[in-house]
Lab assay of single mutants.
Amino acid sequence: GAYRMKIYDRDELRGQMSELTDDCISVQDRFHLTEIHSLNVLEGSWILYEMPNYRGRQYLLRPGEYRRFLDWGAPNAKVGSLRRVMD
């Protein structure tokens, strides 16, 4: 299947937008971000990790809009890595 997600540095799907279609071992290295404040999962399911290298707390992201970090259940906006959930 296809995988696509848009990430934003501000809440409510605002601010600088970056797009992912594959795994990202370090959000900071690739996008120069340490925080993601909202996101829109367009295709596929993903796991968001608090730390790089797929470590730390993890949150399942199904397709849909997440307008603030509380929407995916996190206590803050800190994001380290993102990985696709393969079928």
Rank of each mutant, 00 (worst) to 15 (best):
G1L: 11
G1Q: 11
G1D: 08
G1E: 13
A2E: 12
A2P: 05
A2W: 09
Y3M: 15
Y3L: 15
R4Y: 14
M5F: 02
M5G: 01
M5E: 00
M5R: 00
K6S: 15
K6H: 06
K6G: 15
K6I: 04
K6N: 08
K6W: 07
I7P: 00
I7H: 01
I7G: 02
Y8P: 01
Y8Q: 03
Y8W: 13
Y8S: 13
Y8T: 05
Y8H: 15
D9K: 15
D9H: 08
D9I: 14
D11N: 06
D11I: 06
D11M: 12
D11P: 13
D11F: 04
D11A: 04
E12D: 07
E12H: 07
E12S: 09
L13H: 14
R14I: 11
R14Q: 09
R14L: 09
G15F: 09
G15H: 12
G15R: 04
Q16L: 07
Q16M: 09
M17L: 12
M17P: 08
M17Y: 10
M17F: 08
M17T: 04
M17I: 14
S18L: 08
S18Y: 12
S18M: 09
S18I: 12
E19G: 14
E19T: 05
L20N: 15
L20H: 05
L20W: 14
L20Y: 03
L20S: 13
L20K: 00
T21Q: 13
T21V: 07
T21A: 11
T21W: 12
D22W: 09
D23Y: 12
D23L: 01
C24N: 06
C24T: 10
I25Q: 13
I25G: 07
S26R: 13
S26I: 11
V27G: 03
Q28L: 06
Q28G: 11
D29M: 10
D29V: 11
R30W: 04
R30L: 11
R30E: 07
F31G: 15
H32F: 08
H32L: 07
H32V: 11
L33M: 12
L33S: 09
T34P: 11
T34R: 05
T34I: 05
E35T: 11
I36V: 07
I36T: 13
S38M: 02
S38A: 11
S38F: 00
S38V: 01
L39W: 02
L39F: 05
L39N: 04
N40I: 06
V41W: 02
V41K: 00
L42Q: 13
L42I: 12
L42K: 14
L42A: 15
E43R: 07
G44W: 00
G44P: 00
S45W: 04
S45L: 04
W46G: 00
W46A: 01
W46L: 01
W46M: 01
W46S: 01
I47R: 03
I47H: 11
I47F: 12
I47A: 08
L48Q: 01
L48I: 03
E50Y: 02
E50S: 09
M51S: 10
M51K: 13
M51N: 11
P52K: 12
P52Y: 00
N53K: 12
N53E: 07
N53G: 07
N53Q: 07
Y54K: 00
Y54L: 03
Y54R: 01
Y54H: 12
Y54E: 02
Y54Q: 02
R55C: 10
G56H: 01
G56A: 01
G56N: 04
G56C: 00
R57A: 06
Q58R: 06
Y59I: 13
Y59P: 00
Y59V: 05
L60F: 11
L61S: 01
L61A: 09
L61F: 02
R62T: 08
R62I: 03
P63M: 08
P63F: 03
P63Q: 09
G64L: 02
G64P: 00
G64F: 02
G64W: 01
E65R: 14
E65W: 15
Y66N: 04
R67A: 10
R67M: 06
R67D: 15
R67G: 10
R67W: 08
R68C: 12
R68K: 11
R68M: 12
R68Y: 13
F69V: 13
L70R: 08
L70Q: 12
L70F: 05
L70Y: 04
D71I: 05
D71Y: 05
D71E: 07
W72C: 02
W72G: 02
W72F: 03
G73L: 09
G73A: 05
G73W: 11
G73M: 14
A74P: 02
A74V: 01
P75F: 06
P75Y: 02
P75T: 09
P75N: 05
P75V: 05
P75R: 04
P75K: 12
A77N: 08
K78R: 08
K78A: 07
V79M: 05
V79Q: 00
V79Y: 03
G80H: 02
G80N: 03
S81E: 02
S81V: 00
S81K: 00
S81Q: 01
S81L: 01
R83Y: 03
R83K: 14
R83W: 02
R83D: 00
R84N: 00
R84F: 02
R84A: 09
V85K: 13
M86F: 15
M86W: 13
M86V: 09
D87S: 05
D87I: 15
D87Y: 07
D87T: 11
D87N: 07
